[in-house]
Simulated assay, not measured.
Amino acid sequence: MTRATLVNWLLVLGVILLAAVPLMVVGGEFGGADELAAQRIAADHPDYRPWATALFEPSAEVTSGLFALQAAIGAGVLGYYFGVARTKRRLRRESDTTAES
């Protein structure tokens, strides 16, 4: 087994662990920080009234779509960065071999 193959399998195992461990620890229930803060404020100050309201209340579908768009943009930026870095490294390697010749 080559070093690259071993690294790939370790990365796959790491990704699986990153996905599985939080699900086991939390029990599959993920609540947002906003929800926890609202519960805490309601428990500590039952007479509290918010002084501002949201200008835009998106539905669950719109919220999910915006999150997916954010993830896609982030993946695109990371993919672009890694592509540029790999191309730079390849071109540098090629220029080094032609300079040595």
Score class of each variant (00 low, 15 high):
Met1Phe: 03
Thr2Tyr: 02
Arg3Pro: 06
Leu10Asn: 03
Leu10Ile: 01
Leu11Lys: 08
Leu11Met: 10
Val12Asp: 05
Leu18Gln: 09
Val21Tyr: 03
Val21Thr: 02
Val21Leu: 04
Pro22Met: 00
Pro22Arg: 00
Pro22Lys: 04
Pro22Tyr: 04
Leu23Tyr: 10
Met24Val: 07
Val25Cys: 03
Val26Lys: 14
Gly28Thr: 08
Gly28Ile: 01
Gly31Asp: 09
Gly32Leu: 09
Ala33Pro: 05
Ala33Asn: 06
Asp34Trp: 05
Ala37Asp: 03
Gln39Glu: 12
Gln39Met: 14
Gln39Phe: 13
Gln39Asp: 11
Ala42Asp: 08
Ala42Met: 01
Ala43Trp: 01
Ala43Cys: 10
Asp44Ala: 15
Asp44Gln: 13
Asp47His: 07
Arg49Trp: 02
Arg49Met: 10
Ala52Lys: 07
Thr53Pro: 06
Thr53Cys: 07
Thr53Glu: 14
Ala54Met: 10
Leu55Gln: 07
Phe56Val: 05
Glu57Ile: 05
Val62Thr: 05
Val62Cys: 04
Thr63His: 08
Thr63Ala: 11
Gly65Ala: 08
Leu69Arg: 10
Leu69Gly: 07
Ala71Gly: 02
Ile73Tyr: 09
Gly76Trp: 05
Leu78Gly: 12
Gly79Glu: 02
Gly79Leu: 08
Gly79Trp: 04
Tyr80Trp: 12
Phe82Met: 13
Phe82Gln: 12
Gly83Lys: 07
Ala85Pro: 01
Ala85Phe: 13
Thr87Cys: 11
Arg90Leu: 15
Arg93Ile: 02
Glu94Trp: 15
Ser95Cys: 12
Thr97Ile: 13
Thr98His: 11
Ala99Trp: 02
Ser101Val: 05
